[in-house]
Design a protein around this nucleic acid. Structure first.
Length: 574
RNA sequence: CGGGCCGUAGCGCAGUCUGGUAGCGCGAAUGGUUUGGGACCAUUAGGUCGCCGGUUCGAAUCCGGCCGGCCCGACCA
């Protein structure tokens, strides 16, 4: 390919609306162009990147026996009603919906469990046809609350989504493991530095769930990990060894104390010398939302620890939680914010507590009376016994659950997610096959996603310098560029053409920069665009000399034209 | 949806406080000179200052409403 024939428009300045490096660089290189918030055009060179990545995904999935299909973008409402997700997605506003000329409601697919399940259900009738794994690479549409960071969180984006169908959970385990290895090969081939972390399976449900995270400062997810044991988990899911707290000692009688204007754990520590946070139990009130109701619940946590709201949602099996407002707290407890507690809490209010409080004696808590706290509270004696759950937010520095070594915090970009769905969708949608006994049984499903437009952005986030993008070889728009610095000089043109042809013949994905730009502009442009290997044919062309640049690390050298092929192949690792 | 900020030429911005002929840099076009780090000179094109309404002799500028965008938060198969 000749760059003179490709639409390339680089910018000298960063676009005003870009924040993180990958967004700035992709926009400045003219690789992506925004058309609306979270909606982008992919320029020719960027489309080559996406296609290369998609091809890697295909090759590795096909190797595991998955089938590529193409599903519709437009889905009928009925399909989503059948899985029970229409109302939720519409209420959350995440789904783009539309009506056809007859007034029938449709949506633009935000994900494809329904369509794929319906498809496979129609085709597969017998256990003899299982297992099946189908995937597609296609645009997805989500009306994100806040699109941001360019391709990282768009409203239209490209995703690979795969769905496995098995006869039983054992089959699912096999399918899941195959996808796990395929994913590792995919991200390895792209040269990405990534971590596989345990993840919350969230609203989609199911047993196991792991996320593939590209480590980057701009990542939207927080990860806790331990080098020693290899433990790694999304903070939403992570656990740690419970930090020590002083024992409460033998059970003592309850006492109530005036604590005017003392509302927080820190203030209580100052007010009651000797009562450290670890001996307190704070009580937070949450408004929890279920499909059919809202309810205020009280959640107790040891004073020195924090609540993980994702775990709380899971414990309550609700759709969402949020902290109560001051008014709601007043209405529920009869006291101002800062004095809620288990003692004297109305019977109707459900009471949960973190495992860290199990068996603890002589706690300091609120008692639902403004200006008062209680000392030596004992759960079950002075108040109801709460139901205990793991509700604690694991924090960096706390002990790894496996090795006990301090957990490290990192930020990650989620580029892949694999789930064991089980029979959640197949059961809801009545998607079944005949088992050996001739009885209809729901498919045991897994679902697997890779952010196909997000991953290249994540690659840039992990690989750039002050000059621009440094593409990994596997997904670079071209592996190599041969640039003639002055196309008007016949000897430069001839030599560049010769090298270009030679590299093409050697199987290198090479382009020829024959654009009518000044040498300086050409250097800058190619550095910004980030081709891994760059060959410049300039003033030494007459003597058969060229310059050679390995973009990663900006390693420059000169060599004779005859050595170019060998040097390029070596730089590309062949 | 809450908090903060921004919409002026293709891009980046000044001008808005204090109302009075719409500017700068980059980019684009034409001609010429150039060709090793985003070249130089000359000429040119390009804007109903986001939209609607109000105040005023007069509005990019003041007031009100709406739309769009960015950041923080909540949210996120």
């Amino acid at each position: 390919m000749r760059l003179s024939q490709i639409l390339i428009s680089t910018l000298r300045e960063d676009p005003a609306d870009a924040e993180i490096p990958s967004h700035k660089l992709l926009a400045r290189a003219g690789l992506v162009v925004k058309i609306a918030a979270g909606v982008y055009t992919f320029a020719p060179l960027m489309w080559r990147v996406v296609k290369k990545f998609a091809q890697i995904v295909r090759e590795e999935l096909d190797r595991e026996g998955a089938n590529e299909v193409m599903l519709p973008i437009i889905h009928p409402k009925e399909l989503w009603v059948s899985s029970g997700r229409w109302d939720r997605y519409v209420t959350d506003g995440i789904m783009f919906t539309l009506k056809d000329r007859k007034g029938s409601e449709m949506c633009l697919g935000p994900t494809h469990e329904e369509v794929m399940t319906a498809y496979v259900n129609a085709q597969v009738n017998s256990y003899k046809q299982l297992p099946v794994n189908c995937y597609q690479i296609q645009d997805k549409f989500r009306d994100e609350i806040r699109p941001r960071f360019g391709l990282m969180r768009g409203r239209e984006f490209i995703m690979m989504d795969a769905y496995s169908f098995d006869a039983d959970p054992k089959g699912l385990d096999v399918a899941y493991q195959k996808m796990h290895s395929a994913y590792c090969r995919i991200f390895d081939r792209c040269g990405l530095q990534y971590t596989v972390v345990q993840a919350d399976s969230g609203a989609i449900g199911g047993a196991g769930s792991e996320e593939f995270m590209v480590i980057a400062d701009s990542g939207e997810d927080a990860i806790l990990h331990c080098k020693e044991s290899g433990y790694a988990a999304n903070v939403e899911k992570a656990t740690s060894r419970l930090p020590d707290a002083p024992p409460g000692g033998d059970v003592r009688p309850l006492s109530k104390h005036s604590t005017p204007d003392v509302r927080t754990v820190a203030q209580l520590e100052a007010f009651f010398p000797g009562w450290v946070a670890g001996r307190m139990a704070k009580t937070l009130l949450y408004k929890a939302t279920w499909k059919d109701k809202d309810e205020v619940v009280a959640v107790m946590m040891r004073g020195d620890l924090e609540i993980n709201e994702v775990k709380l949602v899971n414990a309550l099996d609700c759709l969402a939680v949020r902290l109560c407002t001051d008014e709601e707290i007043q209405a529920t407890t009869g006291a101002e914010t800062g004095f809620a507690g288990p003692v004297g809490l109305r019977e109707q209010v459900r009471l949960l507590a973190d495992e860290s409080l199990r068996g603890r004696t002589n706690l300091l808590t609120g008692c639902n009376q403004s200006g008062y706290h209680c000392l030596d509270v004992n759960l079950g004696r002075d108040c109801r016994m709460p139901s205990f759950h793991d509700l604690r937010l694991a924090r960096a520095g706390e002990g790894c659950p496996i090795s006990g070594k301090p957990l490290q915090l990192a930020r990650g970009i989620e580029v892949g997610h694999i789930f064991k769905l089980g029979i959640k969708y197949s059961k809801a949608m009545g998607a079944t096959f005949m088992d050996q006994g001739g009885k209809p049984v729901p498919f045991v499903m897994g679902c697997y996603g890779i952010g196909v437009s997000r991953t290249p952005a994540a690659a840039v986030e992990q690989s750039f310098d002050e000059k621009g993008i440094v593409w990994p070889v596997a997904i670079a728009p071209f592996e190599c560029v041969v640039a003639m610095l002055d196309p008007k000089r016949p000897e430069q043109q001839a030599l560049a053409e010769k090298l270009y042809a030679e590299l093409q013949a050697a199987g290198v994905d090479v382009c020829l920069d024959d654009r009518a730009l000044s040498p300086g502009a050409k250097f800058k442009d190619n550095e910004l665009l980030g081709f891994p290997v760059q060959v410049f044919v300039g003033r030494k062309a007459a003597e058969g000399g060229v310059e050679f640049l390995v973009r990663k690390g900006m390693v420059k050298s000169e060599c004779a034209a005859g050595e170019v092929k060998a040097k390029v192949l070596a730089a590309l690792g062949r």
